[in-house]
Design a protein around this nucleic acid. Sequence first.
RNA 1: GCGCCCGUAGCUCAGUUGGAUAGAGCGACUGACUACGAAUCAGUAGGCCGCAGGUUCGAGCCCUGCCGGGCGCACCA
Length: 582
Amino acid sequence: MAEQLQDLEGIEKVGVAGAGYLNLYLNRRNFARRKLFEEKSSLEAEEKKIIVEHTNINPNKAAHVGHLRNACLGDTLVRCLRYKGENVEVQNYIDDTGVQVVDVVYGFLKLEKKSLEELEKIEGKFDYYCWDLYTRVSRYLAENEEAQREKAEVLKRIEHGLSPEADYADYISKKIVRAHLATMKRLSITYDVLPCESSILRLKFWDKAFQMLKERQAIYFSQEGESAGCWVMKLEDEPEREKIIVRSDGTVTYVGKDIAYQLWKFGLLGQDFYYLPFEEENGHRVWISSAEPTGYDVHFGAASKVYNVIDVRQSYLQKVVVQGLKSLGFSEQAARSIHFSYEMVALSPKSVAEINVELTEEEKDKSFLEVSGRKGIGVKADDLLDRLEEKALAEVTSRNPELSQDGRRQIARQIAAAAVRYFMLKYARNSLIVFDFDEALNFEGETGPYLQYTAVRLRSIFKKFAERFGFAPEKIISPEIIENFDLQALTPEESRDFWELLVYAAGLDEEVLRAIATLEFAGLAKFTFNLCQKVNSFYHNYPVLAEKNEPLRNFRLLTLNYVHQVICQALDLMGIQVPEKM
RNA sequence: GCGCCCGUAGCUCAGUUGGAUAGAGCGACUGACUACGAAUCAGUAGGCCGCAGGUUCGAGCCCUGCCGGGCGCACCA
C-alpha cells in the first residue's frame, strides 16, 4: 500500500509505522505556500435553495435563554451553509393565532380589562409586561373552568379574524415579534421572512393540504374508538399508533398546519403568501407574510432542502410531518426535511433563586428546573444580555479608560453577545444545558471573550508592527517570504510549533463541513478555541516585534496573519464580532 | 408500559463513521507583567469512561441486560 501511495500529490514520502499504520509525510514547503497564499475555500453549494427555520418563539412573552439556544444554533447553521456557498433563506415562524397568544389576549380583556388604546399606552418593555401577565393568566385558567370556556371562544374568534379579539392578537403578536427581533439583533441574528399562522389560516393553505392528504389517502376518517369522528394518520414505524390531524369538530391540529407549512416550504402547495416589509436595517429587509395582496412582487419558499430547528421534545411531531410528505408521494422532500433537534436549557437552583419565582416543594428538590413560560420560570434573554454588558463594560472601562463612553458601550455589547453565542454553541446539541449565571458570565477560559481577546491581541501586534517598521503586514505578505525563507533554519521547537499551528488552522473548512454534516457546532467552537490557545502560546514563545532577524520576524508575522484570518472567519461563522480593543 | 436522550477528573463538558499514551475549561496548588495587552502564558495534582456481560487484532464509542437521571407517547402548540 505504501508504494501505491508514493505518487500522491503533495505527499513527500510514505512510511510504514507498524501496528497497521501508515504515515504520510507532506511536502511541507508546498503545503505552507498553498495554505498561506494560494488556496481559497474549495467548498461549493450542493442545493438549489435551503430554508432554515429557527427561533419560532410564541409571540406572547419575552424571549428566554432556551430561545437563545435555538436562535444561536439556527443562525450558526445559516452562516456555515452560506460560507459553504449555499443559497439560504431564513424563516422565523410566527404562531400569532395560537393558544399562547390567546392566553395573553384573554388576560388583557378579562383580567386587566384594557382597551386596545390603553394597551398601546403601556410603558416599559411590553414583552416583559406580557411575561408576567401570561403567568397570571395561566394560573387563573388552571383554577377556573368557566374561564377556559371563555378562552376557547376567544381562540375561535381570533382564528376567524373577528374584532376586537383578532385586533388584540395582531397588535400584541406584532409588538412582541418586534421585541424578539430586537433581542436577536443584539446577537447579530436576522431573518429573511416571517411566515404567520394567521396567513396560513386565511389563505386556506390547510384546505389545500387537506385535499391532497385525502386524495392520496395519507389520512383517513376514523369511525370508531377514541378518535371516532377525526381524520387521523397512521405512523409507518408504529402502526398501532395514530395521530389526529383534524379534530371531530372539524378544526385542524398544529401538526396539520405544520404539514401544510412544510409543503409550502418545498413549493408543493402551488400557492404562496403575500408579503409586506416588516423591518429594515442596513439594507436588509425582513418580510412578513400577509393574507391580502400587497403589491410587492416577492416570493419565498420552494426550497430543495429544509432544516427545522426545534427542540428534541418535538421529535415525534416532526416525524409526523415528514411522514405526511412521504405519504403524499414526496419521498425526495421527506428525505430532505431535516429536524435539527437539540436538548433544552434548564436552570440551576442557584439561577432560579436569582429570578424571584415561587417554587413548589417538589420543584425545590430537583437538581435543575425546566424553563416554563406558564410558571414564569426562565431567565429572560435581555436580562442576561444586560448583565453581561454591564460586567463587560466595567472590564473594558478599567482596561481602556481613554475610550469614549459610546465606544466602550459598543465593545461591551460585542463582548456580551460573544459570551452568549459561544456559551450556546460549546455544548453538543443533545446535551442538556443547566444554565448557571456564574458560568454564563465568565469571560475567561473557554469563552467567547477569550476568543475575541486572542484576535484583538493579534491585531495589536500587527498595528505595532506597522508603527515600528513603517509598513502594514499585508505589504510584506508574498510567496517570496516562504520561497526565500529557510524553514530548516527554525529551531526544532519552533518548527514543530509552527507546523502544528499551520496544519491545525488549515482545518477550518473541514471543520465547517463536519459541522454541517453532523449539525454539531460544538466541534467548530472547540476548534476555534484550540486554535486560539495554540496561537496565544505561539506568539508568547516566539516574539515578532522583538525579533532582530528580519526574515524570521517576517515569517512569524506571516504565520500570525494567516491564523488571525482563520480565527476571524471562524468567529464570523459563530456570529461573534471582534472589537477594536477590549 | 413503549420510544428517544444523557451518565467520562471535585464541577461543567469534548472525545471526529471502533485505532496509537482518554483531553479541555472552571476550581485547587506553583511560577511568569520594567515584556508584541496577565480577559494571557508555563507547570503540578486530579480518571475501574455508571455497573455487568458480549462482538473485535483493538471498545469511552458497537450489541444485550441492569442501575441512576431527563424528555416524549393530547381532539395543546
